[in-house]
Write a protein that binds this DNA or RNA. Structure first.
Lengths: 135, 135
DNA sequence: CTCTAAAACGTTATATTATTACATACTGTT
DNA sequence: AACAGTATGTAATAATATAACGTTTTAGAG
């Protein structure tokens, strides 16, 4: 039996950029990433966008569409970039990945009336986080 | 009893841009809109973006975040721009507003574990529409 | 009607986000 | 070694969005 290595190894640029996003407590924008990895030899936007595209594709990171920013996947190396949900505080811009079994089951089962077949969804909740409500 | 006119009247630019989006069968991008209303005297991006912002705010249109494009609200002048859901065909890029009572109830009731208060959500489903599945 | 504040407008410039295009190099099979 | 697929580096440019002004219009209060 051949060793099916599910764990794809990342390229140099992919790893550098994933490391940065992983360490960050907040979503990072492409150009913020660029500025932060220039010392590591990544000098131009396409290098960043290519790595980001790949990382999104393999589920290591997610794009927060409403913010054009990227976060690391917290769901133990998420195979399910097919089913993403985030909570976004409109005051402090804190973003968290929502992981709720009921929610993802409900949405994954959801069927369109017009006969579309869904492969994937992305859900973004907006509101105020605990801390910002108090202020 | 004073007449509470819920029906806000749109400004000239807002009306021009809403008309265009309304007539369109597909989501329109800001610069596509700009090019199409230049003959009507709207010449610069800020004019378009201002009108779009307002129209989104009052629920006449919605932004498809993953596409940076705008569609008219089909839910009878949607007060509920608080709860939007769309289906997006990844092949032909057709976009439809999903209106499903169960879905919107479920999501509107959804409560965050971390104590966030949600005011609004946006959900985008991706897949293949009926027609594109056949091809 | 007149005054006022809010909203909308027009304009120029610029910031931010993302892609095209092309030449080169690396990686892992056969 | 040869090939295919993936990744790289680089320059240029496209596409999306906002800042910052000053002016004009609109709707309501008095």
């Amino acid at each position: 039996m051949t060793k099916m290595n599910k764990e794809r190894s990342l390229s140099k640029n992919q790893q550098i950029i994933l490391d940065l996003i992983d360490k960050s407590s907040e979503p990072l924008k492409a150009y913020t990433i660029l500025f932060n990895v220039q010392k590591k030899g990544i000098k131009a936007p396409p290098q960043v966008y290519r790595a980001l595209d790949k990382l999104v594709e393999i589920g290591k990171i997610h794009k927060i569409e409403s913010r054009n920013a990227f976060v690391a996947c917290k769901n133990s190396n998420c195979e399910i970039s097919k089913a993403t949900a985030f909570s976004i505080c409109e005051s402090c811009e804190e973003v968290d990945e929502v992981s709720d079994t009921k929610l993802s089951k409900f949405l994954s089962k959801f069927n369109d009336k017009k006969g579309m077949t869904f492969k994937r969804f992305n859900l973004e909740f907006f509101g105020l986080c605990k801390r910002c409500k108090i202020k």
